[in-house]
Amino acid sequence: MAAPGEAAIRVHGLSKSFGQVQAVRAIGFDVSQGEIFGLVGPDGAGKTTTMRMLAAVLQPDEGEIVIDGVDVAAEPELAKLHLSYMPQRFGLYEDLTVSENIFFYAELFGVSRSERMSRSERLLSAAGLLSFRRRLAGQLSGGMKQKLGLVCALIHTPKVLLLDEPTTGVDPVSRRDFWAILYDLRESGVTIVLSTAYMDEAERCSRLALLHGGAIRHCDTPSRLKESMPGALLAIPAADPRGMRDALVGKPGVLGVLLMGDRVHVRVDDAAKRIPELHALLEGHGFPGAVIEPTEPGIEDVFVALLGQGSAS
């Protein structure tokens, strides 16, 4: 195991192409032991390809992955002993019961019977699945399936846990269970890499890599990413957010406009100077008396701002 503070995962110059499409372009990052590292990006950004290469199920074209001191490309099978990987698509056997799936994965990793019993008891209860042991995995709900996937992935206490969009399609309660388990794992020193398209989930990570077009655009803690966001963020409540957005896009000093439910987030170069201008502008477009206030950026704002998209439509 890597010494405390030393990188549990080191990725350097990692690239992968499928035919003409360059899915991942020379990415590199380090993850320390006990970190929850998030890969964030839109669909097609290269998240899944990166996760598959980390899990040693996909051969990189170029670059190096070292997990817990093992060169993954050179010795994939050795690396797999201490890895756990949960693919984006449910990867367990739907025609096997919850217990049978756990048994199968425990045997593949050589977990002893007593260890399996105690660990599956603990994990199933944390996941709220204790009463579903005899149910076929195919008959579980989406959220329960993902939690079962996590249970199977954790039955052998891996040192590194790789989760590819683990909570996509999962209900809020199951998601809370899921994250509670992840926090416990971090306490016990497991290194976690997860990819997500959910911004609220990205905020829970200790560090984030913003992936776009196969490259890492920014990589830092969520709070520092927010600080690095250029300009200032203003929030404007609106009855017709779309109409307001259309009125604001492309106006002087407006760097970006983002719809946030019943509000519009406007990123401007200089808040003090632009707030009066925006008041006037909105009056002219039929939005009199708009309340314009500075606001703390969420990770979604940062993401959109840093990736240089004018507006998310």
């Binding site: 949960m86 990867g91 990793f109 996937g149």
Partner: peptide, 14 residues
């Protein structure tokens, strides 16, 4: 076809 291969090949089974 059922998508179970990806997880299977991520384990140490030869």
């Amino acid at each position: 076809e059922r998508g179970t291969m990806e997880q299977l090949i991520s384990t140490p089974i030869t």
